[in-house]
Design a protein around this nucleic acid. Structure first.
Lengths: 153, 153
DNA sequence: TTAAATCTACACTGAGTCAATAGACATTTT
DNA sequence: AAAATGTCTATTGACTCAGTGTAGATTTAA
């Protein structure tokens, strides 16, 4: 898995929307400023996430975006797959985006077997984590920084 | 981590060279035919691996390539890093190719923390595995296919 | 010493992707 | 009606990828 800026921005935007869940919509500009993302680019990305059913929008003067589903129902894997495509390092080990590769015998390919291992490790992580986990982790990191515990005796 | 064709070809070539270790050099064409890799492209890749000290070459009519070091001393991580660059999904969690990202606070970035987890998982796999392991695995897969065990009673 | 087979080096290209940017338009509230 | 927002489509410039082209350099064998 390799994240492009597009994918990174998508996750950052979802994190902000997750922290704002159950409240009113957030304007693109607000997210853009808060997360340091080019506004017009973020427009495209949020639109894309809308077509995936991850977020929903309200138009007009008091418009903006909010999550379309509870944060705990949005897995990072589903988001990344929608924005970036395959999670696997090579497409011949991808479950959702499989493509045949040019090696002489896929079934006996040692490299494929290694790559499958790598894929499974990554998928295990991002399939389990949701936007809710992301929010929780963000709050923890915030706490940690606000009240830094001194471990030196 | 995402492998381009270049990286995949490099690993496939190293596997063949590993299986041929301690014997004479292998011609590009031999590897190219065996692994179904465009010959001219493979030339570039092997040259690149030579500059990394992974393989060495012999010129002239009976020339070709062989591994420059024992297969067990060549980790997949080092090869992939040389051909592809960072193993991490985003460069702000890369150890060898770190780059600052645009997020407001890297130390408190929840996404970064997730990405670091994914990076560590992948690195643990490819850092441990070597070309020797790849060869062993290839031989196992060969055996398995030659004498398929029937588990149905 | 010549010919053939190989590696070496560098440049080039066509297709595609990435990260935006542009501009026109639709919708909603005040 | 005006202003603030989201929607949609197209375009751009830089870059990467995967491969080709061409011209050599080196070595061995005849």
């Amino acid at each position: 898995m390799k994240l492009s800026l597009r994918g990174e921005y998508a996750l950052r935007a979802l994190l902000v929307l997750g922290l704002n869940y159950k409240q009113s919509v957030l304007r693109i500009q607000t997210i853009s400023q808060h997360q340091n993302i080019p506004k017009r680019f973020l427009e495209q990305i949020l639109n894309d996430l809308k077509s995936a059913g991850v977020v929903e929008s309200k138009r007009g003067v008091a418009g903006g975006y909010r999550l379309a589903r509870p944060p705990a129902d949005i897995s990072l894997a589903s988001v990344i797959r929608h924005i970036e495509g395959a999670l696997a390092p090579v497409s011949c080990v991808s479950e959702c985006f499989y493509e045949k590769c040019s090696c002489p015998d896929e079934a006996r390919c040692a490299i494929r077997s290694v790559m499958k291992q790598a894929r499974d490790a990554v998928v295990a992580i991002v399939e389990k984590l949701t936007v809710a986990d992301l929010c929780e982790r963000a709050r923890e990191l915030q706490e940690l920084h606000a009240n830094p515990v001194d471990f030196v005796i």
